[in-house]
Structure formats: structure tokens, C-alpha cells
Nucleic acid binder design. Structure first.
Lengths: 178, 178, 178, 178
DNA sequence: GCCTAATCGAGACGGTACGTCATGTCTTTAG
DNA sequence: CTAAAGACATGACGTACCGTCTCGATTAGGC
């Protein structure tokens, strides 16, 4: 069922991903879907949870902090090209239109992801400057880090290029070094 | 008609803003709407164009570059609380779900706005470092500048706070200074 | 649309006559049906009104009162074999299960039909005994006349035979003669 | 379970008497019901069999044949106001809509009842005219006797009044006396 | 000042998807 | 080993909008 939803979204887009369509595709009755989820958003959230956790995870240190940071940003940029990333993008889009979706997405995914990002970036900054930044600082740094890439993709709809990634990484490390 | 669309969107949200609803509210026949616009997205784009141009304009220099930059960012953050900002947010959201909307929004609004932002930030950077940056650099700086605020609002759904604005402005000016 | 309903009822029976089926058969959208009727019972009532009026009409005198009476009873018996009669039978059946149907059938058809029957039988009795019976008496005579045939068909499900028709006619005329 | 079905039918009507509802009301699993009956009609038939047999029984002679006949007709009329009578009416109604129900009702109840009616009326006629009528005649008399009352109740939905009952009884006895 | 023609409101139409209900079959769980 | 609980595929329900399509009625503007 989650696969059917995923596939339909990637193939046909969010609007054409109807509950009836998912049911048909999955060879399942509509009622069965309603038994487990209350909307297609709910289904996609479930589909997202597994995939995205992994795709947006912070890798183990493999080079200098700067290198690791740019690598992570590139991974984030690439994520939006994958199926799970398209689901994420669709849910983000729908969250702008519907408060319930916004809340569900926040609580079902974004808050956790924020924690992972804070932990990942916090550790990286500690490696860089020698001491762990406090939580408020880390939060701010996460926004500085992820904002430009998301802006490029979600608002401008453009690809993420090296120059932006490097400038962003540089800005974050400088700000962290204070 | 544009007012009816605007009002409905602010009062009821994007999904409940139907063409039938706009027609009823405006005391107009559905067909009359279809004569001028091909979808509700088109109507909202029209409604957005006027309002947002002004609300997101760059003000004349009024203080140090740093002060002007933080002031502009605060204005951007506040914009999303206004009716026009909600229309913008809805269109941005829908653009994630629908390619046609993405194209229309880009061509009908975002590209122009990008020009205004590049011009505004370019001039400010020139004031700050004494010479005008080239276009590629300005583009990168615009992403660095606007990304974090948009990320906070669109992805996290949270308010924009002073610390983030200041850190962002600082990062942009340092990056501009090289 | 009425034809589609009629046809389906005769071919498939009452339960299989669904609004979706009628819509499909008539090449029409479901909503169009709901615009004009609020249920399939309503549609069938409309379909009945035209056809049955004529089929259950009292013919002009053509023989002795007794002959005319048996002829009419035979016509009533035959009516249930025709499409309109099957619609009537189905509506009568459903009226036993649903108060709204009972009321609608009564007001949309039976009361009128009762008037026609009272007028027809009243005139016949007047021919037979020389004076017009009062309304209460006619009503009672109508029940005596139509009861046995309906009982045979609706309760026993059997055909109407000559002996019953003749006995009924005889009983009615004797009762009328006092 | 039979009680649950009965109660639901009287309280909520035939359509609202669902197998799910009966199961819930009886604190039983749907499957358990399907083990014993193949439809709600089957359940109601079972529920009917006991009650109606008694309610529609012919009483011992207690007065003149005419008095006994009107008394029986009144009892028949009153029966439709009782719970068992409502079940009978519902089954009769459904039998008009569904051939299987018609057959089941006939074989499960009506044929037996017909025998009882023929025996009861036959005996009464014998008391009245001194000799036992043959079976064909009795059948015809039963139709003459029960038709008007059923017509009043099932078709017109009205109450049975004294005048009708007396006229019917008179007509039957005269026809029997021939 | 009249008359064509464009434009408007109203709303019917064929569709698609919605979310709900009951069906009859089936599997799982607990006594 | 039975029976409760309830998941499942199916299919109709009645509703909401979609975008297209006639309809008059009402304005204009060109004669």
C-alpha cells in the first residue's frame, strides 16, 4: 500500500494520487485504506518516515569538518531527486495549504529530523571549534545550513550547485567559530 | 473577484477556495471566471502580483548596510503573516504539487522578484564593500540571505527570531566581503 | 431516465435497480438524477404515474354491469404482468418497508387511483341498482372488489382465475343491491 | 437472536435491520448468524413462524357463524398492529421485491396458513350451510374473506373498520350459501 | 433611438473522487 | 473446537466541484 502510494506520487503527481487510485493499484479496497489511514497525506507520511530517516542521516566523519559539511549538503540536495524526496516535497507543499498536514508532518517527521540535524551538526561543529555549542546556537546553525539549499529547491525550483553549497558550509563554520 | 479569492483563501484556506465559492462570493457566474482565468491558481497569481511586489520591495538605505539588511529580513518574515503573504505561501505550496503552478509562479512572480532582490542586495553589498559584486555572486548571496528565513517559515512553520536574522545578515556580509 | 429505471426494474428487479445503474443505463451523471429525484423510489413513482393511470382506467360501459365488472377485474389482474404493473408491485412492496415510500405512493398515486375507482364503480353500481350509492358505501365496495384480486397476487403470488373474478363481481353487486 | 431481529425491525424498520445490527444487538459475531441463516429474511421468517401461527389461528365456535367470522376478521386486522404482524408485513413487502423471499415466505409460512384458513373457514361454512364445501370453493371463499382486509391494510395503509368487516363477512356467507 | 452583438447571471450537464456503510468471506485469538 | 472479534474485497450510497454547455436578460455601440 505504501509502495502503491509512493509509486503513484512519483509517476502521476500529488493531485492524481487519489485514495481510489492507491486502492486499485494495491489491489485493495478503499475501506481497507480508511481503516488504517485517514487521508492520503497520512499514507504518504508513513511512506516517508522509513525512507527519509536514512536518506537524511548524518554520515560518520570522513574528512575535514568542511568536507563533511559540503558532502552532507550535497546529499540533502540529491535527496529531493529521489522518490522519498519527492514525497517529502509534496508533503511540504501540502503542509503550506493545510494546517493539519503541517502539524502531522511536523510531529511525524520534522521534529525528529531536526533532532538528528542538531546532533549531526553539533558534533561536527565540536570537531571544528573544539567545544560543543549550546542548543540555541546549533538550532540557528541548522537554519543557516539547510535554509539556502531548501530555498533553492523549494522556492526557486532550481538545482543545488557547488558554489552555493561551499558558500553555505563556509558561512556556517565561520558563524560557529564566531 | 480577486478580493473574493483573497478573502476566501485567508478565511478558509486553499482547499476550500473553490471556483464555485469565489463565483458565489463575488456574485458572478462561474463561466465569467473561466473567461478570464483558467484556474484558481491563476486568480491567486493575479492577486499576488500587485500586493507582493510592494511588500517585498527593498527600502532606500536608512542606516548601516547591516541594519538595512536585518530590517529587510524582518520585513520578509512579517510578510508571511499578511494576506498577500498567505497567498504567496499557498502558491508556493501548490507549486510543489503541480508543475504548471510552479512554472506559472516562477514566470509570473518569482523571476521578477529575484531581479528585485539581486538589485537590492547588490546595491547594499556595494555600499558595504565598495564595489559591485558580479551577478553569480549576488545570486549566491540572495540564497544565503533568504534561505534561512524561508526555511524557518515554510519548513519548520516557526516564527523568525532576531538571532536568526542577525546571524544571517552577518553571514551574508562576511561572505560578500570575502 | 424514467425508461432506464423501468427497464432495469423489469429486467433485474428492485434491489438491482440502483441509482448508479440507472445513471449508467441512461448515459447520464448520477448528480443529474439527484437533481430531479431524491431516491429511486421517487423515480419509479414518476414512471408509474403516467403508465398506470391509463392501465387501471375504468372503461366505458360495454355490456351488463356484471360483464363490465368482471372485465375490469381481469384488466386489473393482467396489469400486474405488464411493466407498469411490476413497478407498481415493487413500490407497493417497498411501501411496506418504508414509511416515506408509503406516504409518497399514497399521495402520488393511490389517492388519485382511489378516486378513479370510486367514480368508476359508483357509476357502474348506479347503472345496476338505479341509484348512486353514497361515498362510504362506494369505498367499501371498492375494497370488496379489489381486495381479493390483490390478495391473490400480492400475498399468494398466484394468478387471478375466472372463478374468483366472477365470485367477487357477484358479491359486490349483491352487496350493492343491498 | 430472533428477539434481536424482531426488536430491531419493530424499532427501526426493515431497512435498518441489518445483519451487523442484529449481531451487535445480540452480542454475537456476524459469522455465527451466517452459520444458521443465510439472510435477514431467513431470520425474520424463523421469528415469524411461531408467533403468527397462533395469532392467526381460527378460534373455536363461540357464537353464530357470522359473529365468529367478523371476530376472526377483526383479529386478522389487529394482528398487523402487533410485532409479529409487522414482521409479516415486512416479509410480505420484501417478497414483492425478491423472488427468493417470495418463495421462502410461501413455503415457510403462507401455504400452512392457507391450510389453516381453509380448514377454519370450511368448518364455519359447514356450520352455516349444513354441508362442507369442496376445496376449490373454500379457496375462493378464503380469498373473498381475507382480500378486502389485506387490501385495506397493505395497499391503502388504512385501518380496518367494522363496516368493511361486516360487509365482507356477509358477502362470504352469502356466496357460501350460494 | 434602434438594433445587433457581446457579455453577464444562472444553473443543468457528464464526470471523478470523496468518505461511509453493509455485504458475505476469511483469518486470528481465547476460552 | 467453537465463537467473539474484526480484517478484507466489493459495490452502492449521497455529496462536492470540476470544466463545459446552453439559456434568457441586459447592456453597449454602430448605424
Amino acid at each position: 500500500m505504501l509502495n502503491a502510494a509512493d509509486d503513484l506520487l512519483v509517476e502521476q503527481g500529488f493531485a492524481a494520487t487519489t485514495i481510489e487510485g492507491i486502492a486499485t493499484r494495491a489491489g485493495v479496497a478503499k475501506q481497507t485504506i480508511y481503516r488504517w489511514w485517514k487521508s492520503k497525506v497520512d499514507i504518504l507520511l508513513d511512506a516517508l518516515a522509513d525512507d527519509a530517516r536514512e536518506a537524511l542521516a548524518w554520515a560518520e566523519p570522513a574528512g575535514t569538518p568542511s568536507e563533511d559539511l559540503t558532502a552532507h549538503l550535497h546529499r540533502v540536495g540529491a535527496f529531493f531527486g529521489e522518490p522519498a524526496g519527492q514525497v517529502f516535497q509534496a508533503l511540504l507543499g501540502h503542509a503550506q495549504l493545510d494546517k493539519d498536514t503541517a502539524v502531522a508532518l511536523r510531529e511525524g517527521f520534522l521534529l525528529e529530523q531536526r533532532e538528528r540535524d542538531a546532533a549531526g551538526l553539533g558534533a561536527l561543529v565540536e570537531r571544528h571549534v573544539g567545544e560543543a555549542p549550546d542548543r540555541e546556537t546549533v538550532d540557528r546553525l541548522v537554519d543557516l545550513l539547510l535554509g539556502p539549499v531548501h530555498y533553492r529547491i523549494l522556492v526557486l525550483g532550481g538545482p543545488v550547485d557547488d558554489a552555493l553549497v561551499e558558500a553555505t558550509a563556509r558561512a556556517v563554520l565561520e558563524e560557529a567559530a564566531g
